[in-house]
């Protein structure tokens, strides 16, 4: 089990390998879309890894990128259709960012580096763990942005009304997109100062 835990911190895709930031940060203004995004990426990553690993010996190397793109986009479209049917409001919030999972470098990176050369079960686990490591960062960033920016968590008011009456204000800056980047920078900083270099 231990060998799969790397992506959570030591090899965290966002904090250490700086992969997959693209589609991630735009959805972290609130906790709910961030969690759904994290789940979607985990599902896509795990199942693409599984499929590619199952068929890895039949893929002609010359066209492997195309095959990978096809498999990934298959899962992404599937996830997108399911979201539209069962989580309509959230799918509207995520809009094009679900589609952008296709070009999420984490997924292509794991396919290329792991699934092409490993057995199905380890590949599946590798996909899950990378998705979770990615999701962890997303959720932490979204937690602080929603709490400080809107005073809510999961759309429920958590900062008591009394605080507003004595002059507390939501930090509007947190809602703006650039704050997501600054928060990730701070997370890298904290992580970096705790880990031996």
């Amino acid at each position: 089990m231990k060998k799969y835990l790397g992506p959570l911190s030591k090899d965290n895709p966002i904090l250490v390998q700086t992969l997959g930031v693209c589609s991630a940060l735009a959805v972290t203004a609130q906790l709910k879309p961030a969690v759904v995004m994290a789940l979607s990426v985990t599902v896509v990553c795990a199942f693409s890894n599984l499929i590619i690993s199952l068929i890895r010996n039949t893929i002609p190397p010359r066209i492997r990128i195309i095959v990978q793109l096809l498999i990934v986009s298959f899962w992404v479209v599937l996830v997108d259709l399911l979201l539209q049917a069962y989580f309509y409001e959230i799918s509207k919030l995520l809009s094009v960012f679900v589609g952008l999972i296709i070009t999420n470098c984490i997924i292509m990176g794991r396919l290329e580096a792991f699934a092409l050369s490993h057995k199905p079960w380890p590949s599946f686990m590798d996909g899950v763990m990378n998705g979770v490591g990615y999701g962890l960062v997303l959720v932490v960033v979204a937690f602080f942005r929603e709490l400080l920016g809107s005073g809510t968590l999961w759309n429920h008011q958590v900062i008591p009304k009394a605080l507003y009456q004595i002059g507390y204000l939501n930090n509007g800056l947190m809602i703006l997109p650039p704050m997501a980047l600054i928060l990730v920078g701070v997370m890298i900083w904290i992580r970096g100062s705790r880990v031996d270099r």
Partner: peptide, 23 residues
């Protein structure tokens, strides 16, 4: 720059600040 922040950490923060500027 503080040691743990070098490399990607500071790059993220700078991008964020540039983004604020662009706003």
């Amino acid at each position: 720059i503080p040691e743990p922040l070098r490399g990607n950490g500071i790059a993220y923060i700078i991008t964020g600040l540039m983004g604020l500027g662009f706003m």
